[in-house]
Design a protein around this nucleic acid. Structure first.
Length: 506
RNA sequence: GUCCCCAUCGUCUAGCCCGGCCUAGGACACAGGCCUUUCACGCCUGCGACAGGGGUUCGAAUCCCCUUGGGGACGCCA
């Protein structure tokens, strides 16, 4: 009794069901990932269901590698789906059945016009710079002729019969763009079934969304102009259309739509993973490309973003993803870097740990003891060096000297800090001797050694401080010297100071 | 060519729906300063926009129209 009451109540509220429906014809790129993110956010916000549907009905271009890349990308971003992946190709039969239904109810008709013929017409129209629209001549075919041609095995496509009453208008309310109206007269009788009997996207997509009971279609604004056609299909099928929410497009700095084909790997999710991005930093950044919170907050935890996110606050204007391929500094949008570096240096060390580990493992700098005996040291080291890092890659490049003796010396640093004064050739070994004697090896003891050494030799402390920095880390920049020396450790510091002699004279 | 959408600092944007609180706010980037053994971080300051033109109104970034600019869609692609 109680049970059925609960059921009744829950059936009153329509469950939020959204989907991300990429076609597996290439990489998962920023635009797609952002669409996935917005859908995911909306599902989570409404305790709804996030569905992954692979629209693989373009057999020519779909690949299994691409499917894998999409799965990997979403997984890495942390955008977990609740149902799927479904494959659109598995539903092909349902789609053509829907077309048959539309044929039976008089909402569609067979068109025997040849592809070549129509293409020629289209080309002509283009040459004359006039709009081409199929004239619907096959609408008028009488039953006898149709049967004749069918007996004859003439090939045909199925076209949707767009209402032709003079003032017929298709209306829908977009959650982002508001009320959209389009005159039916501006829509041609579009093809829904190919001559080989296979369905087209415009049909398959609407049928699948119906079958999956999708409540909200959140997709790129490039779908906006197609929506009236789909609304027509829903209506002809006798189904209430989902709520549409079109999101503005992301453009490149030349204002061209971001696409895998022209932008290649530099806009792919895999690339950001390889270049040392934290997945959530990327999500947080992407969320702000076309959406903003009510109070100006920019950094959001997952829960915060889910709570703050709302379709009504999605912007209508396209945004530019401001990156310059090939530019080492602006290889991606500077604001994306800002999000990554801020997360990198403020997130709890324990959360950062696995990412740094992965990076060091990949670059063969990982030592199992970082997770066991030297764990404390390792965490302290990460914490010390991360404040000037931008991506995870920095831990293995700029941070190399902390994890390996096999690191490079920056030429400019050597010139500036070691070759600047010949006396360093014996100052540094002397310092090494003094440091070796230290019983309590820590940053304040080290500072004491350096300060008194400078007094003794009547030199500026900066001379040996900067020299030691370069001798020990290979660089002219980095953390405060005494913390640096403390972290690198007595043995390595002494060795590096002694061998730096060679760099001074050379 | 036709249809549709959009328009605030270099970029992401707040404000627009419900005109006055906007000498237009924030963030990134950039420039300068402070801090400092270096470089970052941090803090402070600066630079910097309502596309243009008409209306409506006492008053317009906000409402209306036009122009311009940008984008998207027009396929037997998805």
């Amino acid at each position: 009794m109680k049970f059925s009451l609960m059921n009744d109540q829950s059936s009153n509220a329509v469950q939020t069901r959204v989907r991300f429906a990429p076609s597996p014809t290439g990489y998962l790129h920023l635009g797609g990932a952002r669409t996935a993110l917005y859908n995911w956010l909306w599902a989570r916000k409404n305790d709804g269901v996030f569905i992954l549907r692979i629209e693989d009905t373009d057999a020519e271009r779909s690949t299994t590698e691409s499917v894998q890349e999409i799965l990997d990308g979403l997984h890495w971003l942390g955008l977990n789906w609740d149902e799927g992946p479904y494959f659109q190709s598995h539903n092909l039969k349902k789609h053509s059945e829907a077309a048959s239904g539309l044929l039976a109810t008089g909402n569609a008709y067979r068109c025997f016009c040849s592809k070549e013929d129509l293409e020629a017409q289209r080309n002509d129209a283009e040459k004359q710079k006039v709009a081409f629209m199929y004239d619907g001549r096959c609408r008028k075919l009488d039953q006898d002729e149709i049967e004749n041609r069918l007996r004859n095995n003439d090939s045909f496509v199925v076209r949707f019969k767009v209402p032709r009453d003079s003032d017929s208008t298709i209306v829908f309310d977009d959650a982002v763009y508001g009320r959209m109206e389009k005159r039916a007269a501006d829509i041609e009788d579009f093809v829904i079934l190919r001559s080989d009997g296979s369905p087209l996207y415009i049909l398959s997509n609407a049928v699948d969304d119906t079958l999956d009971r999708i409540s909200h279609v959140i997709r790129g604004a490039d779908g906006l102009a197609n929506t009236p056609k789909q609304v027509l299909i829903y209506e002809a099928l006798g189904v209430v259309p989902p709520i549409f929410a079109h999101m503005p497009l992301t453009l490149d700095n030349k204002k061209a739509k971001l696409s895998k084909r022209v932008h290649g790997e530099s806009v792919t999710i895999a690339y950001y993973k390889n270049r040392g991005f934290l997945p959530w930093a990327l999500c947080n950044f992407m969320a702000l490309l076309g959406w903003s919170g009510p109070d100006g907050q920019e950094f959001f935890s997952r829960d915060e973003l889910i709570k703050a996110f709302d379709l009504s606050r999605i912007n209508r204007a396209n945004s530019i993803f401001n990156y310059t391929p090939g530019d080492s500094k602006n290889w991606t949008d500077p604001k994306a870097i800002h999000f990554n570096s801020t997360y990198l240096r403020t997130m709890p060390i324990e959360e950062l740990f696995p990412y740094v580990k992965e990076e060091l493992v990949a670059k063969e700098l990982w030592n199992e003891s970082y997770e066991t005996g030297q764990k404390q040291w390792f965490q302290k080291t990460i914490d010390l060096i991360r404040s000037r890092f931008l991506t995870l890659e920095d831990f293995s490049s700029r941070g190399r000297a902390y994890f390996s003796d096999d690191f490079e010396f920056d030429e400019k640093a050597v010139k500036k800090n070691l070759k600047c004064d010949d006396r360093l050739a014996f100052f540094l070994p002397e310092l090494a001797d003094e440091i070796e004697q230290l019983e309590d090896y820590n940053s304040s003891a080290l500072e004491e050694v350096f300060r008194s050494f400078a007094d003794k030799k009547e030199i500026k402390a900066g001379l040996i401080i900067n020299a030691a920095r370069t001798a020990v880390s290979g660089s002219s920049v980095g953390p405060g010297l005494f913390e640096l020396l403390d972290i690198v450790g007595k043995t390595r510091v002494v060795n590096r100071l002694r061998s730096a002699k060679g760099l001074v004279n050379k």
